[in-house]
């Protein structure tokens, strides 16, 4: 898994509520079984005009935000469909961090598994940072997962909290499956006891004789 410690870069303001994963990447572009190829369709409906040309009104088409690594958003970002292509599309575009008051729960978990940190800050803080960016779009915002801080262009520091387990995983870039497989004996032990208690939860295999 891709690790993340901190990023300092351009921050794009998209401070709207309820931006759902159908907007982040429409179902139409979920094609294929690949892990990649989604960044080109990020925010497709907003980013492109009906004829396929970039929509000049959309923030991510306006330099320097086309190089943004931090996304500023409002509450309930990433709500809706569980599609993991949503964080994948954001990551492929270049984002490493999102700063918003709250997130869709599945999306929140998916971010951590795709090298990107979803930072929770109150909307007032998001707006303050967005105001600084509005005044100076080229200014850099830092998101530091190790220090649990967001630093605005003017140097104002906003501490945040993150779930310990997910944070540890992302900082170290560990392979979560490997980590769990290390607990194999505990898992086996649990399954044995559980099977005695809830036998109906365990089915015979279809392909077994």
């Amino acid at each position: 898994m891709e690790a993340f410690t901190r990023v300092t870069g351009i921050a794009a303001p998209l401070v709207r509520i309820n931006i759902d994963t159908d907007q982040i990447i429409p179902t139409l572009f979920l094609g294929g079984t690949d892990a990649k190829g989604y960044g080109a369709h990020l925010f497709h409906g907003w980013r492109f005009l009906p004829d396929g040309r970039p929509n000049p009104e959309f923030v991510l088409n306006q330099p320097p935000f086309d190089r943004a690594q931090v996304l500023l958003a409002d509450r309930n970002f990433g709500c809706g469909s569980s599609r993991e292509r949503a964080p994948k599309a954001l990551r492929e575009f270049g984002f490493r961090a999102i700063v918003a008051p709250s997130y869709g729960g599945i999306f929140f978990n998916n971010c951590y598994r795709n090298g990107m940190v979803p930072v929770e800050l109150p909307i007032e803080a998001v707006r303050e940072i967005a105001a600084e960016v509005d005044a100076n779009p080229a200014a850099q915002v830092t998101v530091d997962l190790e220090a649990l801080k967001v630093i605005s262009p003017s140097g104002k520091v906003y501490p945040f909290t993150a779930p310990t387990t997910l944070r540890g995983m992302l900082l170290a870039g560990v392979d979560e499956i490997e980590l769990t497989l290390g607990k194999q004996s505990e898992i086996e032990g649990f399954r044995e006891k559980d099977r005695a208690r809830r036998p109906w939860a365990y089915l015979p295999s279809e392909s077994d004789p």
Binding site: S82, E84, R113, E176, I177
Partner: peptide, 10 residues
Amino acid sequence: WGIGASEAEH
């Protein structure tokens, strides 16, 4: 509950 593809792999 709903999960992502990485979680499903897990």
